[in-house]
Simulated assay, not measured.
Amino acid sequence: MSHLGLLLLGLAFSWLWRAQVRLDRAGSWAQRWQWAWIHFLLPPLFLLTTALALAWMGPRGQMAGAGGWFSYGCALLVLAAAAGLALRWIGEYWCSCQRAHRQALAQVNLCGFSAYVLDLEIPFAAQVGVWNSQLVVSRGLLQQLDEEHLRAVLIHEEAHRHYRDTLWMLAVGWLRRLSAWLPNTELLWQELLTLRELRADRWAAQRVDPLVLGEALLQVVSYGRGQQPSNAWVGFALEMDPPPGGRLQERIEALLQPKGPEASGPSPSRESWGWLGLALLPLLAIPFHT
């Protein structure tokens, strides 16, 4: 296979894999989790390893065939775009974290949690940071919720810190931007965010009354309906951590189930690793290039 053929194969595989995605919420939570990760990660990773293999082999060689220089240039362009998007995404997130600390009114203790308070009317809470994230809440949230419901929201946010969701979603957010041109990228992104919120809800429900947590979600949505965040940092944070209104009914129903999805989340199965292993196939072409 020529270099051009390998490039076309990578593009065709990535596009067709995503094009056939059909969201199915009939399966178990664990099945939905595995399905969403595989379909989200595999196409961009396959495309990146294809570009890496072409860049490694260079524009010349017995395997190059027609389009050697063209394929080589395209591969370098893909890798440069991936690196540029990664640096920009990290830079934006770092600036947003610094902006949050500068604009915080104070660092306070809320129900046993250390949090930074922002001067915003919209009810808002999120984890900010990468590895050791910090809790950020808005003045509007403190005004609208009583202590019991506020504690439920804060424990939900502590679940995100427990699972290092800010680190994982920072990496996945980069792949989202890189594969924005592929079909169903936004659909899978929203599914991953919903499943992440369901996991955090279940973790919190083991520590507070699930009904209280559900009431807190409803109150935040009710108070925040129709309000748009005017702060640029909050807009960025909401992209990483959408407001509780997203698929609220599904989250409430999950909280009311006697046995919801396991709070720890499913570990990757052998089948999942096998599917993701397909992303490494383009690298197998390197030993055959001379």
Score class of each variant (00 low, 15 high):
Glu239Ile: 03
Val234Met: 15
Ala83Thr: 05
Gln34Tyr: 03
Gln219Ser: 14
His160Trp: 01
Glu147Lys: 10
Trp174His: 13
Leu188Met: 12
Leu284Gln: 06
Gly91Thr: 11
Tyr93Ile: 00
Arg102Ile: 04
Leu145Thr: 03
Glu157Thr: 05
Gly68Tyr: 00
Gly265Gln: 00
Arg60Gly: 00
Gln34His: 15
Gly173Gln: 04
Arg18His: 13
Ala30Pro: 09
Cys74Phe: 09
Lys259Tyr: 06
His156Lys: 02
Glu92Val: 03
Leu118Ala: 09
Trp275Ser: 06
Leu87Cys: 07
Cys111His: 14
Leu54Ile: 09
Leu142Cys: 10
Glu148Ile: 01
Arg199Trp: 06
Leu218Glu: 15
Gly5Met: 06
Arg102Glu: 13
Gly274Ile: 01
Leu105His: 10
Ala285Tyr: 08
Leu213Glu: 14
Leu79Ala: 03
Glu148Gly: 06
Gln144Thr: 14
Ala216Val: 05
Gly91Ile: 03
Ser133Gln: 05
Gln249Pro: 05
Trp56Ser: 09
Arg18Leu: 02
Trp273Thr: 04
Gln31Met: 02
Ala12Trp: 14
Gly140Pro: 08
Leu281Pro: 10
Phe288Gly: 06
Glu215Tyr: 10
Leu110Arg: 03
Ala75Ile: 02
Asp119Ser: 13
Leu218Ile: 05
Leu8Ala: 15
Ala200Ile: 03
Ala66Asn: 06
Cys97Gln: 14
Gln228Ser: 12
Ala75Pro: 04
Gly214Ala: 15
Asn132Met: 08
Val128Ala: 09
Glu191Tyr: 02
Ile286Phe: 04
Trp275Val: 02
Pro261Gln: 05
Gly5His: 09
Leu145Val: 03
Glu186Tyr: 04
Glu215Phe: 05
Gly265Thr: 00
Ala200Gln: 03
Arg139Glu: 14
Ala75His: 02
Thr49His: 11
Leu23Pro: 03
Trp233Lys: 02
Trp29Asp: 11
Gly246Glu: 14
His160Phe: 03
